[in-house]
Amino acid sequence: MGSKTNNKLVIVILVTLLPIIAFIHLSSGTISIGFSDFYSALTNFDAQSTNQLIIKEFRFPRLIMGIIAGGGLSIAGLLMQTLFNNPLAGPNILGINSGASLFVAFSLMSGVPFFSSDFGTIISALLGAFAFGLLILAFSMVVKSNVSLLLIGIMLGSFTGAFVSILQAVSNPEDLKMFIMWAMGSLQQVEFSQLPIIFIFFLIGLISCLFVVKSLNTLVLGENQALMLGIKVKYIRIFLIAITAILTGLITAFCGPIAFVGLAVPNIVKLLFKTQSHRTLLIGSLLVGSIFLLICDIFVQLVESTIHIPINAITSIIGAPFVIIIVLKRLV
């Protein structure tokens, strides 16, 4: 049937598509910038040139963040869907996103200038994501069943959601606006100087994935069968949650809680490749996730001069119908 070659072809197409989309992403925006400026911004940067400055300080970080956020959230979603054997799981199912939201809500509405600065927001989001990542990790060590763990994650989400609502109700309009802007998600907040650290964490997440491919392939048969095949399910679960926490925490800290990508993309990738080989699914999620989020952000850029549309609105507008289709397909 040659489906292996088909899948290779799909990957080749995606790999070619990514730089094309990336270039469109770089060149769209309020100010139009020529190809020569891109070239010189990369090879021979001139800080006096406004165009080159825009590229280096705004467009390039935004592009890289788009690729990392799209790819990273999709991979995190895939890990969670396989771990919980549930196509509707996503990186935010474990309450990692809500942890970040809670901490950011606290810091923005604390009234302390340091915490309400951009840097303070990033630190709070990172702390929140990792605190909740650790919390769910601690739960995962004592809770045996994945369904129970999933339930605890959802409960953590509701619990923190309630706190965030209370904070919103009592905060002043200025702080509230800042929080809502953060919660809408955006790729614009990242600075050039922050890229290396983001990239290193992203790479750690990616490389860790190489070591769980075998376990993920086995986990699709269910925990019990995986155990009987010699997989140390307990440790693998901890490892998978740790990777998810790193990727989701990192991305949420810099972009806010981006919805739907982690849920929708792995499902699209499975439909596209029709396989359970996680090597293919991971590569697919990385590529499709990046392309998907960049396309969403191109829409944001197109109307940026007139209105500021949050990227979460676009991901959901495109992502939600996909999820509905997938749910319907499963019922048939």
């Binding site: 190489l210 070591f211 491919v213 075998k214 392939n217 086995t218 048969l221 095949l229 010699g230 997989i231």
Partner: peptide, 11 residues
Amino acid sequence: LGRTPHTNIFG
């Protein structure tokens, strides 16, 4: 997948 216990870490 039956080979899982026999393969290396990368499967």
